[in-house]
Amino acid sequence: MRTTTIAASLSLAVLALAACERARYVETGSPEGIISVNDVDFQDILKASSGMLESLGETGVLKTAKHKPAQLIIGDVVNDTSSRFDVGELTYRMREQLVNSGQAAVVTTFGNTPEDKQAQEVLRREKFLKGETAEPLPDPDFSLTGKITQVKRTAGDTKQATYTFRLTLTNLRTGMEAWTKTVDMTKLGNRNAVGF
């Protein structure tokens, strides 16, 4: 009787250990990460950013700019999905690669709502001290804008969500679209799961 009780307790302990998963580090963007049916996951953002950068590289559009490297302003990228995340996660990854590899220079002192207001003020002051009246601001080649959308469907308990990341590069000298790219991600299931 006692042996049976010990065996049963041991079995329960083993089962409990197997059921609980201890927290651990995983590589960011790894397929082991959690996959959410109704949300944009970090892996999705990394995949979208990678797809956009590959497309920019293969078309060579940045090499057509007047400036070398191309001067770029990052415009609005609208998150039109029900999933909450910062679109900067997408654009900053792209910026990092483009700027650090010398393919583009991001202008942070352009327009009425510059990314770096202080740097814009310094530029204006320098220009003023030199007695120049014209706007001293940089002369960007391209503007990057975009939108992230979703299409959701259900069949019984099964949910499907397609997230579409779309970016457009506008040539600021012609006002025409110079490059555009969409990256789709479709997820299907009835609940979130840990990847593989």
């Binding site: 950013s49 990678s50 950068l53 590959e54 590289g57 792209m94 990847g195």
Partner: peptide
């Protein structure tokens, strides 16, 4: 590079897919 990320895809039985990278 920010392009070196894990991407997932699937292939049906008997089928093939093209994976690519720039």
């Amino acid at each position: 590079s920010q392009t070196s990320v894990w991407k997932s895809t699937n292939v049906p039985s008997g089928g093939s897919t093209v994976i690519r990278s720039v």
